[in-house]
């Protein structure tokens, strides 16, 4: 985490004074973006940097669904299962992804390429069903589009790119 401190210092500038505690969440997000997850050493360093109680960081990490303390696959497929997506075929999308990748929601493919997660409404109901791939929304999904997407991502990995 320590190499991110200059960035954190810059972030602080727009906050009012005395908002160190507020930085917990943005710092954790940034750390996760950097490493893929939040490691024990990050927690220790963050607690030391922000001077907040460690329990606060642990509570925040355990509460928010987007934060994680363990690495996951290279591509995080997050499929919405809430009302509008379900009404537009999300259950089929999730079942299809699950079959195609050979993992259940919550699991990662053995080669570490894909992690499949079911999530609640992503605020994109008008273009349901929606699947997030890492940060990006993929809207109006269908099994054909999914196949193409997954195949492209997998091919990219095989070719050594990103």
């Amino acid at each position: 985490m320590k190499h991110l401190i200059p960035e954190f210092e810059k972030m602080k500038e727009r906050y009012p004074e005395g908002f160190e505690s507020s930085l917990v969440l943005p710092c954790l997000r940034r750390i996760q973006e950097d490493r893929g997850f939040v490691a024990e050493e990050d927690i220790v360093a963050l607690v030391d940097y922000l001077k907040v109680p460690r329990i606060q960081v642990e509570e925040v990490l355990s509460y928010y669904t987007m934060l994680r303390r363990k690495p996951i696959g290279r591509f995080h497929l997050q499929a919405c299962r809430n009302i509008a997506c379900s009404m537009r075929g999300a259950e089929g999308v999730i079942a299809h992804l699950s079959r195609k990748l050979g993992v259940k929601p919550g699991q990662t493919t053995p080669d570490g390429t894909f992690t499949l997660t079911e999530v609640e409404c992503l605020g994109s109901c008008g273009t349901a069903p929606v699947v997030m791939v890492n940060e990006a929304y993929h809207e109006n999904m269908s099994t054909e589009k999914l196949d193409r997407l997954v195949d492209e991502l997998a091919a990219g990995v095989r070719a050594g790119g990103k």
Partner: peptide
């Protein structure tokens, strides 16, 4: 000054007081 504060996956953060607790960097 305006800060954009990003949540991390939680419906109750939309509830006004949950939102505030979230900005305070605590469990919302």
């Amino acid at each position: 000054d305006i800060v954009v504060y990003r949540g991390a996956g939680s419906y109750v953060c939309g509830e006004a007081s949950g939102l505030i607790t979230s900005i305070e960097g605590r469990k919302p």
